[in-house]
Simulated scan of single mutants.
Amino acid sequence: MKIKVCGMKYKDNIAAVAALQPDYMGFIFYDKSPRNFDTEIPSISEDIKKVGVFVDAPINIVLEKIYKFGFKALQLHGQESIEYCEDLKSKLAKLPQPLEIWKVFSIKDTFDFSRLTPYEGIVDCFLFDTKGKEKGGNGYTFDWTALKNYPSKTPFILSGGIGLNEIDNLKAILNTDLPIYAIDVNSKFEIEPGLKNREELEKFKNALLVDC
């Protein structure tokens, strides 16, 4: 099971977390977020895919960040339309390296999965996060039973308030037939916004990978 650590902000902490070899590390470009990234990314393993997280950002800004930071995936966390995603996908196709596009949808108790249909075949993954006050990092999980009727074969990433206390529930949902591609963690492993507790992340990774 792939693991993404999102909301990275500080150079030394980025390096420390990268030593755990998560599959993805996320960097948020949204000035209203306490995890807004505005510095340089230190050298990390090429095996770790860097993810740029954007909220309704102009495509030229997204492309600028790709060139600057070498992102391998883009997480769209706003109200990006299908037309936006199609335009972005066509521009990404001209780049020398392929990039994944993830579209985020927020869930509380229920979800209308027909909202996903226009994005099928355009995005590589959906990401389901907790619907709350903030654009991510709200610190609590949504009702995962809402996913039992997921109708698509497009893989998705499970996010929203996931921490050490969710290990048993995670193992249960990972043993279903749902096409879960990765687990995304953030606020439950923070000392402060953007600063991750490396030791707890290591415990999480080791616990999750047992029997998964």
Rank of each mutant, 00 (worst) to 15 (best):
D124P: 06
Q75K: 02
L20A: 04
L164P: 12
L208T: 11
I61V: 14
F105D: 01
I48T: 13
N169G: 15
Y119L: 01
N197Y: 02
S187T: 14
D168E: 15
T176R: 01
K133E: 15
K9S: 03
F27Q: 06
I66W: 08
D109A: 03
P151Q: 00
K171R: 15
L76N: 05
D109Y: 04
T141M: 11
W144I: 10
L20G: 08
Y30V: 05
S114T: 15
F126W: 01
K188Y: 09
D31W: 00
K196A: 08
P98I: 01
V55E: 03
D87I: 02
L201N: 07
S106W: 02
V55S: 04
K4G: 09
T176N: 05
V53R: 07
S159C: 05
L158Y: 03
R198L: 14
E86K: 15
I191H: 06
I122L: 01
Y140S: 10
A18R: 08
A146Q: 10
K91D: 04
M8T: 07
V5P: 10
D184Y: 10
S33C: 05
L147I: 10
I59V: 14
F111L: 05
E120I: 02
S43K: 12
S81K: 02
Q79L: 03
F156V: 10
L92P: 12
D168F: 04
D129I: 04
I48W: 05
I61E: 15
N206L: 14
T176V: 08
C212D: 12
D47T: 15
L92A: 05
L158W: 04
P22N: 01
Q97F: 10
P34F: 00
K68E: 14
K4S: 07
G194E: 10
E134W: 09
M25W: 11
N206T: 15
D184T: 11
L195F: 08
L174S: 05
D56W: 00
N149R: 04
S45D: 14
K89Q: 13
D124M: 01
V17G: 03
Y10C: 03
K203A: 11
G136T: 11
L74K: 05
F204K: 09
E100K: 04
D31A: 12
K153L: 10
L201M: 10
I162R: 04
